[in-house]
């Protein structure tokens, strides 16, 4: 049965779009049929991170308003045939998204895909609430930093009260994805540790993505990090997280970068 997953955070810039693209590609790589949807009307970026920015013709709002068929708006990924993108509108008003319209599109997608991943905009306004509204599962993307943790706490509150599942009295499945984690800094007491964030937010952990140069490299060229360099630390962490989302039990490893003496002396160079 299809699952609707929302990738959300409250705070901007923590890695929602990067994570949507990386998890979407990882799930598709494992043979699942995946569609990623951009809910950030007016500030779309999932198309850019996925490398499909020049192929956008129709968007979510066109489909909601009946100006285009779903099949016309879906952009099939060039690298993985079972991965598709439904972009957001860059020009339309975000009020053009209605709850009923979004529900109708999601129901249609449920028949064609195994995973429907909704990339939420930042904030707690209409776009963000609509992205989470019909979700079965939520991935809360958090940086080990005070403002991100506070906003995640707020979003968790909304997931437990303003979603369809919550209103029906059902339990919303929530997972924490800790991104931009720097093990060395956390060990030195300069950054909140995994356990600190888990204790504060008290939702289960789905993955720890290390701070890495690979993430920017991947977005530069418009390829999800799980496809651009599958053996890199962040890609492996995303692959593990994707397997956990599928229900597999994968041991959680805190990413550590092994540095040789020369590396320590001369710092990190471009690989």
């Amino acid at each position: 049965m299809a699952k609707v997953l929302v990738v959300t955070s409250g705070k901007g810039g923590v890695g929602k779009t990067t994570s949507t693209a990386a998890l979407g590609a990882a799930l598709a790589h494992n043979g699942e049929k995946v569609v990623v949807i951009d809910f950030d009307v007016g500030l779309r970026n999932l198309d850019l991170v996925m490398g499909a920015e020049r192929r956008v013709v129709f968007d979510l709002i066109n489909v909601v308003q009946g100006d285009a068929k779903l099949s016309q708006a879906l952009i099939r990924d060039k690298r993985l045939e079972n991965l598709a993108l439904l972009p957001a509108s860059q020009t339309r008003d975000k009020d053009a998204l209605t709850e009923e319209g979004v529900a109708k599109v999601l129901n249609e997608l449920r028949e064609k895909f195994d995973w429907i991943i909704c990339d939420s905009p930042a904030g707690i306004e209409r776009g963000a609430t609509l992205a989470m509204r019909h979700a079965d599962v939520a991935v809360v993307v958090t940086n080990p930093e005070v403002s991100s943790v506070r906003d995640s706490d707020r979003i968790i509150g909304l997931l437990d009260s303003k979603t369809e599942k919550a209103e029906k009295g059902e339990r919303m499945e929530k997972h924490l994805l800790l991104t931009r984690y720097d093990t060395a800094r956390a060990e030195r007491g300069e950054m909140l540790k995994v356990d600190d964030v888990l204790e504060i937010l008290s939702i289960p952990l789905i993955g720890i993505i290390p701070e890495s140069e690979e993430v920017l490299r991947a977005s530069n060229v418009g390829t999800p990090v799980t496809l651009s360099n599958p053996n890199s630390m962040p890609a492996r962490a995303y692959f593990d997280a994707a397997r956990r989302l599928r229900g597999e039990s994968v041991e959680m490893s805190i990413p550590t970068e092994k540095k040789g003496l020369l590396n320590k002396l001369f710092g990190r160079r471009a690989a």
């Binding site: 930093e145 943790v149 707020r154 007491g189 950054m191 600190d196």
Partner: peptide, 23 residues
């Protein structure tokens, strides 16, 4: 001096209050 424990304590106090208000 390490700063992460300060961040954790500040968050714990703040969120204990915010949860009460929002919820």
């Amino acid at each position: 001096r390490t700063t992460a424990p300060v961040a954790r304590d500040r968050l714990q106090i703040l969120l204990a209050h915010e949860r009460g208000i929002v919820g």
